[in-house]
Design a protein around this nucleic acid. Structure first.
Length: 672
RNA sequence: GCGCCCGUAGCUCAACGGAUAGAGCAGCGGACUUCUAAUCCGCAGGUUGCAGGUUCGAGUCCUGCCGGGCGUGCCA
C-alpha cells in the first residue's frame, strides 16, 4: 500500500484534560524522562490506569523498553526516574515491581480534592482542550427514497455521540447529514409515480405511497434482472456440480490435504449456488404467482433502463421530473425528521447529494486537467497505483457517481469550514470507496486534514444473518422504535407494580419513562459494542436489567436520585454547603476514583472514535456505585458529616452518569 | 483470483504491545422486617482458530495455513 498517504496521527495530548490525574502524572514524568531519552512521549504513553487494583491506581511501564535502549537494567532506570519525581502530594506510594513496572497509588487526599472541585464545577472536573480543532462529522446519510432501516441506527447514533463528546471537550463540530436525495433510487420513485401511482393514497399519505412505489419498482427490476440471472446461475451450478464429480473421481479414496481442501471449497460453492438459486427462484415465483404483479412485470419489461432514463432526465434538469422531485423531497425529509426527533438527534447541516449537483462537472474537469483522472471505455475514473479497480467519477452515459459527489463535498467542506478533520461514519462495506476517495483527496492537494472512515459492522439477527423480517424485508426503523418502547413499557409496569410500597407511577409517567428507556436501550446497545464488529440485535438483551445496558445505567441513576427524594435533600444547598468528601472505606474510595476518571474515559473514547470506551466506563462507575450502595448507608450514616460526604458522592455519581449518557445521546429518568 | 475485516469462556462481547486475558448472560451457592432485589456477594468456566517469527514482554505486530463475513468498472 505504498501509494496511500498516511493519515496524520494526533497524540492523546491534543485531547487530554489538564486537570485529569493522568495528564498531571504525565507532566511530572515528562520532566524526569527528558534527560534520559530524546523521545519522552513514547514513555509517557506508557503511563496509564492500572488494569488490576493490586498494581495500584496508575502504572508507568516505560522502564523495560527504556532500559533496553539505554542498556541498563529496567528496575534501575525505574528507580532512578522515581528518585527524580516529586509525587508526594499526589501518591501515597510509588513502587518498582516485577521487571520494572512503576505502580502508583494515589493519596486519598488528592482524590478528594479533585472530587471537591467537581462538586461545584459544571463540567465535573473535565476541562476543555487547550487547542480546539474543527471536526466535520458525516453521519446517518439516509436515502430519502427508501424508509430508514436498522442499518441507519449505527451511523446515526455513533456519529451523534462522537459529535457530543467532541463538543463537550471544546472542539468545533459541524455535523452534516449527507442525505441521498439525487441518485438512481429517485429515478425509481419517478418511474413508479409516472406509471403506478394511486392518487388517493398519495394525497392521504404521500410518503407511504412513495415508499410503496419504490418497493414496487425495486421488485420489478429485481424480477427482470433475476430472470436473466437465474439461467446463468443454474448453468454455473450444473458446471460446478460436474466439476465436483470429476474432482471426486480424480481424488480417489484417500485424497491428500490440498485435494481435500479443493473438494471442500467446491462443495461449499455448489451449496452457495444452490441457496442463491432457491432464494432467487422464490423471489421470481412471488411475482409470477401474483397475476397483477406478473402483468406489471410483463408490461414493464424494460424497467431498469427506463429508471436510469428518469434519473438522467432529472439530472439534466427536465422540468417535469424536477418539479416532482421538489414536491417529493419535503415530505420525505419530514418523514426522516420525525425519526430524528424521536431519537433526539440533530444536525447542523443536511446538505444532500443534490446540493453538489452544479459542481460535479467541474470536479471531473479538474481531475482530468490535473492528470489525476483518465478516460477509459467511455467512462472517466481515477486509477490509483496498486488498486485493481478505478474509482469511477463519470459513467459512459455522462452521469456522475457518488464518488464524484463525495469529492465535491470534500472541496465544499474544505472551502467553507476549513476542518482539521472529517469523520465519515459509514458501514465497513464502503471501506474501499473511502480508501480511493481519501487517496484522491490527497492528490488534489489537501494534505493537512485528518480523514477518517469511522466504519462499523452489520446489524445481525438471531440467525447471524443481516437483520431482516421473516419475509426477508429489511426492518423499518419506526417499527423498531415502537417495539423497543412497547417492551420497555412492560418492564416499567412490572417493576412499578412490584415496588414494596405499591406502584408510584401514573399511566402517563409510565409511558414517558418507557419511551426514554426504550430509545436508550436501542442506542446504548449499539454504542456499547465495539463499532468495528457486527452485532446481534436482540430486544431482550438491550432491555436486560443486568449487565452493560442503558436500562441498568438508567436504573442506577434513578436509584441515586431516589435517595435525595426520600431524604428530602436540597441538592443545590448541599453543593454550596462546603461539606467535605471523605473516603473511609474501599467502596467509597473506588467510587470516588471512578468519578474522577470521567475525563479520561472521554479521551479514551475519542482516541479511536469508539463510544464503547465511554459505556464501559459508565458501567464500571455504576458497578462501583452499586457496591457502595450496598455497603455504605447514606441517609442513615453514623454521623452527619459522613452523611454529607456520602450524599456528595451520590450527587457526583448521578451527575457523571447523566452527563456521560448525555454525551452518548441518551436521556435519564428520575424515577423508574 | 485479488483486497479489506473478523476468529477470545457454552452464548453475547471487552481488553490504548505490558504483570495471573476481563464483563454480562446461561449454570451453581448465598443476601430483601434495612436508602428501588431492574440489585449485590461468591463459585465454576480459557492452549485467545492452528503453526512459526519479531520483542525484555504478543489476544494485540509480521508470515503461512484453517474457518467465516464483506467488497471487487459504470448502485449508493
Amino acid at each position: 500500500m505504498g501509494w496511500a498517504l498516511p493519515n496524520l496521527v494526533f497524540s492523546l495530548q491534543t485531547l487530554s484534560d489538564p486537570m485529569s490525574i493522568l495528564s498531571e502524572l504525565k507532566q511530572r514524568f515528562a520532566a524526569a524522562l527528558a534527560p534520559l531519552t530524546d523521545k519522552p512521549d513514547d514513555g509517557l504513553d506508557m503511563v496509564r490506569q492500572s488494569q488490576d487494583p493490586r498494581f495500584g491506581d496508575y502504572q508507568a511501564n516505560f522502564a523495560m523498553s527504556l532500559g533496553k535502549q539505554l542498556g541498563r537494567p529496567p528496575r534501575e532506570v525505574a528507580t532512578e526516574v522515581l528518585g527524580q519525581l516529586e509525587l508526594g502530594d499526589l501518591c501515597e506510594s510509588a513502587e518498582v515491581a516485577g521487571p520494572g513496572f512503576i505502580n502508583l497509588r494515589l493519596h486519598d487526599a488528592w482524590i478528594t480534592s479533585q472530587l471537591q472541585a467537581a462538586v461545584t464545577d459544571e463540567r465535573l472536573g473535565v476541562a476543555e482542550v487547550e487547542r480546539p480543532r474543527t471536526y466535520v462529522i458525516d453521519y446517518s446519510a439516509p436515502n430519502v427514497a427508501k424508509p430508514m432501516h436498522v442499518g441507519h441506527i449505527r451511523s446515526t447514533v455513533i456519529g451523534d455521540a462522537l459529535g457530543r463528546m467532541l463538543r463537550f471537550l471544546g472542539h468545533r463540530v459541524i455535523s452534516d447529514n449527507h442525505i441521498g436525495d439525487w441518485g438512481t433510487q429517485f429515478g425509481m420513485i419517478l418511474y413508479g409515480f409516472h406509471h403506478f401511482r394511486d392518487d388517493e393514497a398519495y394525497r392521504g399519505a404521500p410518503v407511504v405511497e412513495l415508499a410503496r412505489l419504490y418497493r414496487l419498482v425495486r421488485q420489478l427490476i429485481d424480477y427482470h434482472q433475476g430472470k436473466v440471472k437465474l439461467p446463468k446461475l443454474q448453468e454455473r451450478l450444473a458446471q460446478q456440480t460436474a466439476n465436483l464429480e470429476d474432482q471426486r473421481k480424480a481424488a480417489g479414496p484417500s485424497p491428500d490435504k490440498a485435494t481435500k481442501k479443493a473438494l471442500r471449497r467446491a462443495e461449499a460453492e455448489v451449496g452457495r449456488l444452490g441457496d442463491e438459486i432457491d432464494a432467487l427462484a422464490a423471489k421470481l415465483k412471488a411475482v409470477d404467482d401474483d397475476p397483477a404483479l406478473a402483468r406489471l412485470a410483463a408490461e414493464h419489461a424494460d424497467i431498469d433502463r427506463a429508471v436510469l432514463v428518469e434519473t438522467a432526465k432529472l439530472h439534466a434538469g427536465d422540468e417535469g421530473n424536477l418539479r416532482l422531485w421538489k414536491e417529493f423531497l419535503p415530505c420525505c425529509l419530514d418523514e426522516i425528521q420525525r425519526l430524528y426527533d424521536r431519537l433526539g438527534v440533530t444536525f447542523d447541516h443536511a446538505l444532500g447529494e443534490s446540493f453538489y449537483n452544479e459542481w460535479l462537472p467541474g470536479v471531473v474537469e479538474k481531475l482530468l486537467a490535473r492528470g489525476i483522472a483518465q478516460e477509459s471505455n467511455g467512462a472517466i475514473g481515477v486509477f490509483l497505483p496498486g488498486q485493481d479497480v478505478p474509482m469511477l467519477i463519470r459513467k459512459q452515459d455522462g452521469a456522475f457517481l457518488y464518488a464524484t459527489t463525495d469529492l465535491a463535498t470534500v472541496e465544499y467542506r474544505m472551502k467553507h469550514w476549513k476542518p482539521d478533520a472529517i469523520l465519515y461514519v459509514v458501514d465497513h462495506r464502503q471501506s474501499m470507496h473511502f480508501e480511493h476517495l481519501f487517496a484522491t483527496v490527497r492528490l488534489l492537494g489537501y494534505r493537512d486534514v485528518e480523514l477518517e472512515h469511522i466504519s462499523f459492522g452489520t446489524v445481525l439477527g438471531n440467525d447471524n444473518r443481516p437483520f431482516k423480517t421473516r419475509s426477508g424485508d429489511t426492518v423499518g426503523l419506526e417499527g423498531l422504535l415502537d417495539e423497543a418502547i412497547s417492551r420497555a413499557g412492560q418492564i416499567v409496569e412490572t417493576n412499578d407494580d412490584a415496588k414494596p410500597n405499591g406502584p408510584e407511577l401514573s399511566a402517563d409517567q409510565r409511558q414517558r419513562i418507557a419511551e426514554r428507556v426504550g430509545i436508550a436501550a436501542l442506542k446504548y446497545a449499539d454504542l456499547s459494542q465495539n463499532r468495528t464488529s457486527d452485532y446481534v440485535f436482540s430486544y431482550d438483551k438491550m432491555l436486560a436489567m443486568n449487565g452493560n445496558t442503558a436500562t441498568y445505567m438508567q436504573y442506577a441513576y434513578a436509584r441515586v436520585r431516589s435517595i435525595f427524594a426520600r431524604g428530602g435533600v436540597d441538592v443545590d444547598a448541599l453543593r454550596r454547603s462546603g461539606a467535605k468528601v471523605v473516603l473511609n472505606t474501599p467502596a467509597e474510595r473506588a467510587l470516588g476514583l471512578a468519578i474522577v476518571r470521567f475525563g479520561e474515559a472521554i479521551d479514551l473514547a475519542l482516541l479511536d472514535y469508539r463510544p464503547n470506551q465511554l459505556t464501559s466506563y459508565l458501567f464500571e462507575l455504576a458497578g462501583c456505585y452499586s457496591t457502595f450502595f450496598e455497603q455504605c448507608p447514606v441517609l442513615k450514616a453514623e454521623t452527619g458529616a459522613l452523611r454529607q460526604s456520602r450524599l456528595l458522592l451520590c450527587d457526583l455519581t448521578a451527575r457523571v452518569i447523566r452527563k456521560g449518557l448525555d454525551l452518548l445521546g441518551i436521556d435519564v429518568v428520575e424515577k423508574m
